[in-house]
């Protein structure tokens, strides 16, 4: 088993997948850090400055309902601890998609690059190969989380300090966000490996997973809203959108409720874990039966 994990890590290191992945993790972390930083900067201002920033100095002339909207936004976001949690998990939005794609590519490239024959000749027990990939991918995902978190915490803490706020480190809400972020990285990696085993076509798998991740939440919100309005007007119908993986992920990592009827965070974690395990289980079974030609 150790051999297989080691071999998978070696295989990653000896193609350009390695630095492409590292570059993407760094670039997305830095980009989202800047976006979140700008956001935090304005929200952490006193309300008057916040309004000024949003109305480009014409605070006196803005309509009352817009002002009310700004007030609501400011009240929700004017919180050093909340902003710390947000800043320190900046890498998440794109990062979890990247580790998911990494998992997918680690499996599908065996078919795309026609190396499956070679790999399964060395290790005829195909489940062992998948387990090796799984552990290797989890290690890499953990490393990606670590790098992203170190950058985000360093930059974010310096920023908060400069704004006169505490860094929030050691505060349970902040530490919890950082740890849940790790959970998200790991669960999406599992999901990626399972998805790759199920959909062995590299392009099909990466594109469909990306689409699922990016528009899954919006699509789910729309569909479940319609269901709720026209089919079954119950609150649990709206809560049920947590079954969609990206929604589950959001529910899991949200410090507050992800949406109005949102179930508690652990439900999101369980849903994501169940999806990942089901995908791996089914993918593994499919792979056992597949003729490598």
């Amino acid at each position: 088993m150790k051999r297989l994990v080691h071999a998978e890590l070696f295989k990653l290191r000896t193609t350009n997948a390695w630095w492409l992945f590292a570059l993407a993790i760094l670039a997305s972390t830095v980009t989202m850090l800047v976006v979140n930083g700008i956001n935090a900067y304005s929200l952490l201002q006193p309300f008057n400055s916040f309004v000024n920033l949003h109305s480009h100095g014409h605070a006196g002339s803005i309509p009352a309902d817009f002002l009310a909207h700004l007030r609501q936004e400011w009240t929700a976001g004017h919180d050093g601890i909340g902003q710390a949690a947000m800043l320190y998990t900046s890498g998440q939005l794109i990062g979890v998609l990247l580790v998911c794609l990494l998992g997918i590519v680690m499996v599908t490239s065996e078919f795309y690059q026609q190396t499956a024959t070679f790999t399964f000749l060395q290790t005829p027990r195909r489940s062992a190969v998948i387990r090796g990939k799984l552990v290797a991918a989890l290690l890499v995902a953990g490393l990606a989380w670590l790098v992203s978190t170190v950058i985000s915490v360093a930059a974010g803490a310096a920023f908060l300090h400069s704004q006169g706020y505490s860094t929030g480190l050691g505060h349970w809400a902040v530490d919890r966000a950082i740890l849940l972020n790790l959970a998200a990285y790991l669960l999406w990696t599992l999901f990626g490996i399972g998805f790759g085993c199920l959909v062995r076509h590299q392009l099909a798998a990466t594109v469909s997973a990306t689409v699922l991740y990016l528009i899954g939440a919006t699509a789910a919100a729309t569909v479940f809203e319609l269901l709720n309005t026209y089919v079954l007007n119950q609150n649990w119908v709206l809560a049920a959108q947590v079954v969609v993986p990206p929604v589950a992920s959001t529910v899991m990592v949200s410090a507050t409720q992800a949406f109005e009827q949102s179930p508690p965070a652990w439900v999101g974690a369980v849903v994501l874990l169940v999806w990942s395990l089901v995908a791996i289980r089914l993918g593994d079974r499919r792979l056992q039966r597949h003729d490598i030609t």
């Binding site: 295989k11 690059q113 060395q122």
Partner: peptide, 25 residues
């Protein structure tokens, strides 16, 4: 064994292709 339609990763060097196999086995 050497089979047709068996290949190496296009971006990996021959040496690393073989080394990966050594590590795995």
């Amino acid at each position: 064994a050497v089979l047709e339609a068996s290949s190496a990763h296009r971006g990996r060097t021959g040496r690393n292709h073989l080394r990966a196999a050594c590590i795995a086995t």
